[in-house]
Structure formats: C-alpha cells, structure tokens
Amino acid sequence: MPPAAASSIIRAGAGTARCVAQPSQVPVVASFSTTASRPKFTKARRLFRAWERADGRVFRRHAGEKPSYLPSRRREDDTDKPFPLNPYFKSARVLDERAREVVWEKIMRDGETIKAVSAEFGIDIRRVAAIVRLKEVEKDWIAKNKPLAKPYAKAVLSMLPTHRINPNQSNEPFEAINELHVHPYTMQQIFWPTSESRHFTREDAAEAFHPTLLSADKRVPHPELIQMEREVEQGRPLWDASERFKQAVMESERRAAEKQVAKTIHEEKKTTRVNTERFEFRFKQFNSENVGLKGRSRSVVGWRYGTPHDDRSKGHQIKIPTSVP
C-alpha cells in the first residue's frame, strides 16, 4: 500500500470519528461537514439586516388605517407613491365597503341609472357597473352561505387609501369621470388652412382630422353632463337642470337597452333551433352571395380560400380569444 492512500483512509476515519463524537455541539444540519459554518454575514447581508432593524421595521407589521409606502427620495409629502424612483405611479384610492354598498343600493334598490350615480359620486361609469356586478356576486355568496374572506378584506382596505361616500351629502368626486380617450386620428399634426375669421369649433376640428370622427362633445362618456352645464349657463336653475339631466340619462340608458333587445330579436329571427336528444342545433341564416368583388369580403362566412392564416403574423392576433362568452 502506498502511504498516501493509507493516510487518506486515516483522515476519513478521523473525520467520521469527529462527526460521531460531537453530535451535541455541532448543529445537526452541519453534522456531515468538518468545517465550521461561516461566522459572519456578507456585507450585503449585514446591510440588509441593519435596514431590517432600522428603516424596514415599520413595514414589518402594518398598524393603523393609513397606507405606508417607502419614503420618496425627492420630497417628504409624497406619501401615495409606492415606488421611490417612479413619481408617475400613484396608489389610487379605492372605494370602501360602505361606499360600494351605497352605490349598489342606489342602483338596485332606488332604481337610479348608472350614469346618474356615476355623475353624483364622481365614479367612472364602468366602475359603477362593476361594483354592482361584484356586489351581486357577494350577495349571492351570502345567500348560499359561502364563506367570505372578511379578515383579508379588512386587512387590505386598511393598507390602501380609501374613499368614503356619505349618501346624504355632496361628496368630493372619487375620480375624473369625463375622460376622453385620445383617438389615434387626433394624434396627427395636420395643416388645415382656414380663414382667420372662421368660427372653428370642436366639430370642425374633428372633421378636419377625419370625416367620420365625432367631436369631443359626443365622444366623452357624459355628454349629458355637458348639456346640463350648458343649460345652467343659460340661466336654468340647477335643480331643474339636474332633473333634466336625470331624464336625459334615463332616456339614453333606455335607448341602449332597446338597441340591445332589438339586436337579440333580430338574431333570434335569423336562427332556427332544432332540438335533438343530445344537443340543440342552431342554424343561422346568412347570405352566401354577399362575398364582395373577389369573394374575400370581410362579411364572408367560413374559412376563406386563398388568404393567409393571419394567426401567426403580428398584428392579427386572432388566436388570442377576444372574449369569454
């Protein structure tokens, strides 16, 4: 036997002996290792621990009803920005439980229109609709005795900036409700010669951008609100104008509902339903001769011949479904 091999065996033996000998002193996790674990942290880790004990301590447990975000580098009063480096992202307020209940009651119990509630509390139309929808689900859960995540809701709402609504008073608006989507047609700079004396209104501007583009007054979510303000300008008393506003939004909501119903009736008229044991077959009538000049018009039904499948090219992402029915 060469001496090197022998010594290695001895060393191994010694190692195992040590392991067996000191199980009580050496931690269990390191029992197979002969080297002591590193006594010191790295610098980064040490700094982290220092931060955790000093500045980070306040974030460990949340106390109180106010949000606590990382302090901003720039100024002290920035308390609604979660990211210190990004002053453009603000933590928006959310409606508290009571406010959502008030909105639901206004619509489902008092029968007010979504637009009227939206204008009253300054909540976006889509948000009002979503609140009613979610509240209905919650009531359904309560009726079915499904457990709600109440402790979670309480904790989360205490960490977020919340907005309250007092149903009997005038409230400050929750968000901007009359926001206009910036249409791509309006993003171009166009040269439009016109006489200086011309009364060039928003209508004209819209037409200058594109012949089919509606003016901003018609594209905003609350055109009725502008009409109301206009009537107030003309000297109509506020209560009267707001009453007329409510009538107008009621009318517009009714028209939208009628349109929806008419559409369904029209669809239903075109379909023939045949019930079999297993499935219902729905035959929808369509005009196969309406195919355009080259037989490739957009209204053609079915897989089209001689056209590429656009699902693999960028920009025609039809393979991602556009809706969940």
Partner: peptide, 26 residues
C-alpha cells in the same frame, strides 16, 4: 393575519375594481 412586509406593496391600479370579500375583480 396579513403576511409581513405586505403594506408597502399594497396598491390597486385604477383599471381594476377589486372586491376583497369575494376575492373577485373586474
């Protein structure tokens, strides 16, 4: 109880309407 260090991350963007009780959002 909420997990530790949750509060500084707590924000809900405006394009979501969240209902915490039923863990649903629109």
């Amino acid at each position: 109880r909420p997990r530790n260090y949750m509060a500084p991350f707590a924000f809900i963007p405006q394009y979501l309407e969240v209902h915490q009780n039923i863990c649903s959002a629109v």
